[in-house]
């Protein structure tokens, strides 16, 4: 008799009514702590450290697209003042040299973009300039990829195709040691 009694008790279900409350509590906790932060940014591969400065004097002047940014965030592109807004188009024209001008790069494989800033340059400006230069290459890659494979350049493309494009237009962006004229804060 006693046995049946305990079995009866075991048949009692656990009250699941408060389950929703518990779940809500946890849910609110995670809602509050959640940061669906997507980290995006400009991916850069730095050159390995070497003690001697690379010598760029040996390069032909027509192959070097020099961009200087001073401590007042002003641009000097190929010895002339310029605006950030026109940088991308100028870089693209320089790299591809569609009109075969004698003062622009001999070809995309020879083109070198040299970026030099001051220690007093704002990071904002530096990144905007870097963004435009990278954008110039990105656009050229996309155009080439569109012509050749009929799709824009992306990381999802087969590795061989990406490599072929990057071999055709290699991204050479050399950053010189910054000058130290401006005031740092």
């Amino acid at each position: 008799m006693a046995k049946t009694k305990t079995r009866d008790r075991m048949n009692n279900e656990i009250n699941a009514g408060s389950m929703a409350d518990i779940a809500f509590l946890l849910l609110i906790f995670f809602l509050v702590t959640t940061t669906i932060a997507e980290d995006k940014g400009i991916l850069v591969k730095l050159p390995p450290w070497s003690d001697e400065e690379p010598d760029i004097t040996k390069l032909k002047e027509r192959n070097v697209f020099s961009v200087l940014v001073n401590a007042d965030n002003q641009l000097l592109v190929r010895d002339e003042p310029a605006r950030i807004g026109e940088l991308r188009e100028r870089a693209k024209e320089f790299i591809m040299n569609p009109a075969n001008r004698p003062d622009l790069a001999e070809g995309p494989k020879n083109a070198i973009i040299s970026l030099k800033n001051d220690r007093g340059t704002d990071y904002d400006t530096y990144l905007a300039v870097y963004n435009e230069l990278k954008g110039a290459y990105d656009e050229l890659w996309s155009e080439l990829s569109q012509r050749r494979y009929g799709e824009p350049y992306s990381e999802e493309m087969p590795f061989a195709q990406r490599k072929a494009i990057r071999d055709e237009i290699p991204m050479v962006l050399s950053e010189a040691e910054p000058t130290n004229f401006g005031e740092e804060n």
């Binding site: 940014g41 400009i42 991916l43 850069v44 591969k45 730095l46 390995p48 450290w49 963004n131």
Partner: peptide, 13 residues
């Protein structure tokens, strides 16, 4: 970072 041989960097933006 270059001296520490950490060459892959990302300027968060």
């Amino acid at each position: 970072l270059r001296k520490s041989n950490q060459l892959k960097i990302n300027y968060s933006a």
